[in-house]
């Protein structure tokens, strides 16, 4: 495969990029001076070299543990459980939450072959041994997100830890990433004990 075709097909593998866009990007880079191409290539390599998962909360980070996990001003007795790092970023932007996080890395989904052992659940249970008082479940209000929250609350509650859930305020069919900030802030303030 020649260099041109190789780059086009690499671009086309990215989410949201079709073949046409991939071609446009490739020809754009071709016309630019070498500077642009090498800085793009470097940025991509740096991403893979420097960014890793926090060994405590599984957030993506450049330093391990991540800045949130290392921050002594944050309340380490409250853990907010989210599906992905993207969800964590949305909540962080609100600036209302002062506790720490745990990123599951997905949701329970038997149809996709994802079971409890495929998520960072064991690691979460380990963390709970260290003086955690409250766990806030902030999975998305999808069928899978709800099932995951129910599964976790049934594991955690017997340990004598308070389990609450947000996302009740997010409209039907909503998604944390799409929820506007006011709704989400309200969801945080109005979090409730999980039923079931």
């Amino acid at each position: 495969m020649d260099a041109l075709e190789r780059l086009i097909s690499e671009f086309a593998k990215l989410p949201g990029i079709g073949r046409k866009t991939a071609q446009r990007l490739t020809f754009f880079l071709l016309k630019e001076d070498g500077e642009r191409a090498s800085s793009l290539a470097e940025a991509i390599l740096a991403l893979k070299e420097r960014i890793r998962y926090c060994s405590v909360c599984f957030n993506i980070t450049e330093e391990d543990p991540c800045p949130i996990c290392r921050d002594p001003r944050r309340d380490h007795s409250t853990i907010c459980v989210v599906e992905e790092s993207g969800d964590l970023m949305v909540i962080e932007r609100l600036g209302v939450y002062k506790g720490v996080y745990h990123v599951l890395g997905g949701v329970l989904s038997p149809l996709d072959g994802v079971g409890p052992e495929d998520l960072h659940i064991r690691e979460l249970l380990e963390r709970l041994k260290e003086g955690v008082r409250e766990v806030i479940l902030a999975t998305n209000p999808t069928v899978e997100g709800e099932a995951t929250a129910l599964y976790l609350s049934r594991l955690i509650r017997p340990l004598g830890i308070r389990v609450s859930q947000i996302a009740r305020g997010i409209p039907m069919g909503g998604d944390i990433e799409l929820a506007d900030e006011i709704t989400l802030t309200r969801a945080f303030e109005g979090r409730r004990e999980v039923e079931g």
């Binding site: 038997p110 409890p116 995951t148 129910l150 599964y151 594991l155």
Partner: peptide
């Protein structure tokens, strides 16, 4: 899938 635990089934029961 056969041998599945009650614990794993439970959240789907509730749903």
């Amino acid at each position: 899938e056969g041998k599945v635990s009650r614990r794993e089934l439970k959240p789907w029961d509730l749903q």
